[in-house]
Design a protein around this nucleic acid. Sequence first.
DNA 1: TAGTGGTCTAGACCACCCT
DNA 2: GGGTGGTCTAGACCACTAC
Lengths: 233, 233
Amino acid sequence: MTTVQNQSWRSIRSEVVRRIADRDWLPGQLIPGEVELAREFGCARTTVNRALRELASAGLLDRRRKAGTRVSLNPVLKATLDIPVTRLEVEQRGAVYDHHLLERVVAVPPQQVAGRLGLTTTSRMLHLRALHLADDKPFLYEDRWVNLAMVPQILDVDFGLISANEWLVRNIPLTTGDITFSAANASPDEADILRTTKGAGIFIVDRTTWAGPEPITSVHLAYAPGFQMRTTI
Amino acid sequence: MTTVQNQSWRSIRSEVVRRIADRDWLPGQLIPGEVELAREFGCARTTVNRALRELASAGLLDRRRKAGTRVSLNPVLKATLDIPVTRLEVEQRGAVYDHHLLERVVAVPPQQVAGRLGLTTTSRMLHLRALHLADDKPFLYEDRWVNLAMVPQILDVDFGLISANEWLVRNIPLTTGDITFSAANASPDEADILRTTKGAGIFIVDRTTWAGPEPITSVHLAYAPGFQMRTTI
DNA sequence: TAGTGGTCTAGACCACCCT
DNA sequence: GGGTGGTCTAGACCACTAC
C-alpha cells in the first residue's frame, strides 16, 4: 500500500477520479471505506469524507451508510446552466442590449397560465409582452404574467428603464420554480415580432416562479432563430 | 441577539436563506463573519462554514478572504440538467425503449465534425446513425462520430444489444465536454426518420466529449417534435 | 446489531487580499 | 499588517440500514 502524506481533499478527489478513469475501480464496485482511505492517504477521515462527498454530489459515487461507497453504474451527466438576466445574456455575447415594452395590461390570465401558477381564482394579473434586442436585432420575445396579489408594487415600475425580468430578480430574491426547454415553429405573431419567417424553428423556454408557497410569475420566452444555449460538463 | 443551540448546518443554511428572502440582509450587503455567526448560533465555526460554503456554491453568497461574505448582487439562476442515457430518459417517461441502428460505417468525418473534435487529420472515424424509440414511436435521432484512435474496441460492439450512447458511458468513464441546445427545422431526411413533417420545429442537442485531452465522440441529437426538457430550480 | 457514512466540535495553521 | 475564509485534525456521537 502506498501512503501519500500531506494531501488536501482536492488531491484525494483527483486520485479517486483517476482510479475510476483508469478503471482501477470499476463501475458498481465497492471502494474502500473512509477509515481505510484515510489510513492510506495519511490524513484525517474528515478530509476523505470531504472528497468523497463532493464526488457523490457530482454523481460519480453512490454512498450509503452501512452499504459503503460504490462507483456509480449510471453516472448521470449533470449539466449546469447559468441563466443570467437577459440583459447580461446579451452583453455576454458582446452585443448592445435594449428592450421594448410591447404591451402592459392588467387582465385575467388564460386558464393555462392560471393553472401553471396553481391559481384557481380568476384574479387579475399583470400581463407584459416585451422584445429584447441584441445590437438592435430581435433576440428574445417575452410573454409574462405577474401575480399582482404577491407583487402589487410592480404596477409602479417604469419598464422603459428596467425589464420586468431584471426588476423581479432584484426585488423578489430567492425564488424557486421550474423550467421547460423545447422547440416550436414560430407563429405568425412571433415571426412578425422576431422579424423572421412563419414556421421558423425557435427555441422556447417556459418558466414558472414561486417565492416559497406563493406563485409569482409565469413567463414564455421565444428566442430568435439561431439562438444557442451552451454549457460545459 | 438570539442564540439558538444544537443547530445542524442545514438549519443554519435555512436561517441564512430566510434572512436573505425576508431582506434582513440585502443584496450586496456584508453579513457577519463565521466566528460571529458561530457565536450567535451556538455552534462551531466549521459548521457555519459548511452552511455558508454551500450557499456560496449555489451562487447565493459571494465569499472572499479578508473581504468577508456578501449577499450576491446578481444571483445567477443555476439550472441543473440531469442528462441520463437515452434508454433511461425514455423509461423515465413511462415508455418502452427500443432503438434501431440506421448506419454504421467507417469514414472520414466532415470538416465540421473534425473541427469540433480538434482533429486536423483526416483520420477515419466510426459513423453511427441510430433512431431511439419510445413506445415504438420515434423519440430521438442520433448522428454520431467516434474517434477510433481512442476507442478502437468500439468496432467489436453489437449495437443491436446496446446503444452507442450507453456503451460509451459505461466504457469511457469520466468524460468532459460541451453541450449546445438549440432549435431547428426538420430537414427532409430528419422529418422522414422522425416520422414528422419537413420544417417541423425540433429540439437539437450537440455534444462533444473528451477523456482528458483526447477527443472521444461528437454527436448530433434531433428530438421528435413535442419533446420537452424539464428541470427545477 | 454491527458497520458505514453524516455530522459536529475545538482548535490550529495557512492563504489570500483589502486597507 | 491583519482580518477573513479555507482547510485540516483527532475525536466523538449519531443515523441509517444491510445483514
